[in-house]
Amino acid sequence: MKIERLSPDKIRIFLTFDDLSERGIQKEDMWQEIPKVHDLFTDMMDQAYNEVGFDATGPLAVEVFALPAQGMVVIVTRGKYDHHQYMGHIEDEIPEDVYEMEVTLEESDTIVYAFNDFEVLIEAAHVLQWNITKAGKLYNYNDKWVLYLEPADLDEDKHPSLIAVLAEFGESISTTEAVLEEYGKVIIPEDAIGVICHHFARQE
C-alpha cells in the first residue's frame, strides 16, 4: 500500500492485488458495503494519518480506479459536513470521527506509467522493446514523462511481464488520456517505445 498526498484534502492510495488478496478481497468487492472492505478502508485511513497526516473525519468521496494486472488506485477527497443531511438528529449526537463514504468505481484497460527521469524511461524502453512492437504514446505532464499504452496494441499474454518492467522503472498513475491531452504535452504521438530506442542509447 502506497500513499501520496495530493492536496490538504486529497490523497492517492495505490493498492496492489497482493494488498487485496491478503485481506480476501476481490476487485469487485471494492464498492460493496462489506466488513472486510470497511476494515481495509479503516487501515488505509489509519496509514494515511500516520504517514501523511491526512485526517479522515467528515464526509469522504472515494474514487476507485481498477488498473489491469496492477492493482487499484484509490483517490480519497475530504469534504465538509452538510448539516442538512443530519436533519432529525441532535447535532451533538453526530460523532466527530465517523466518515461517510461516497464510492465510485472506474475500470480502465489502459496502462499508464510516469517516470521522473528521462534516462530511466530510456532504460525501461530498451527493456520493453522485446515485448512491444509498435505501441505507446509519450506525454510530458506535471514535470514527468508519462507513457500511455492502449491494450489493443499489446499482446495480452505479455501484460504481466510488461507491468513488472514498468513497475520497476516507473510509477503507475490513474491519469486519463483526456487529461493528458488537455493538460499535458504530446512528445511522441505513436510508437513511443520504438522511437525512444531508435534515438536514445542505453547508459552503459
Rank of each mutant, 00 (worst) to 15 (best):
A164I: 07
T42G: 14
P8D: 03
N131C: 02
V103E: 00
E204R: 12
K10Q: 13
R23H: 02
V74G: 03
V62S: 06
S174T: 02
P189G: 10
T176Q: 08
P95N: 05
D29H: 13
T133E: 15
F41M: 14
V186E: 13
F115E: 01
D157I: 04
V179H: 03
I75R: 07
R23S: 02
Q129M: 08
I75Q: 06
E181T: 09
V179D: 13
L138M: 07
H199T: 10
V62P: 00
V112I: 13
F169L: 09
A125H: 05
D157M: 14
E171R: 09
Y139M: 03
M45E: 10
E150Q: 11
E100S: 09
P68M: 05
L20C: 03
N50P: 00
F115R: 01
R78V: 07
Y99D: 06
Q47Y: 10
T133Y: 13
E96T: 12
M1W: 05
H199K: 12
K185S: 14
S161Y: 07
I25Y: 07
P160G: 08
R23F: 02
E177C: 00
T175Q: 08
I122K: 09
K2H: 12
T16L: 09
A152N: 11
V64L: 11
E96A: 14
L154I: 13
T77F: 00
L121Q: 05
T133N: 14
E171W: 02
Q70P: 03
K10C: 05
D157E: 15
E22K: 15
I188D: 07
F200G: 02
Y139K: 04
L20H: 08
D117A: 08
P59E: 05
N131I: 05
T57E: 09
I34D: 03
D97M: 11
V98W: 06
K10M: 10
G53E: 04
Y81F: 10
I173K: 03
Q203P: 00
N50C: 07
E4P: 01
T42W: 13
K144N: 11
F41E: 10
E168S: 14
Y81L: 14
F169T: 07
M44E: 08
F65H: 13
Y86G: 00
T104H: 07
A135S: 12
I132H: 00
E156A: 14
R202I: 11
A114L: 03
V186S: 13
I196V: 13
L20A: 06
Y86A: 05
T16I: 08
N142C: 06
W130D: 15
T57W: 03
R78T: 07
H84I: 11
N50A: 15
V195C: 00
F14A: 05
M72A: 15
D92K: 09
E106Q: 11
Y183V: 01
V112M: 06
H199A: 10
F118H: 06
Y49A: 12
Y99E: 02
L121H: 01
E63K: 10
I3S: 06
A192W: 02
Y113S: 01
S21P: 04
P189D: 10
S172P: 11
E150V: 08
L162S: 01
V98D: 09
D19S: 06
A201Y: 03
V76W: 00
M101K: 12
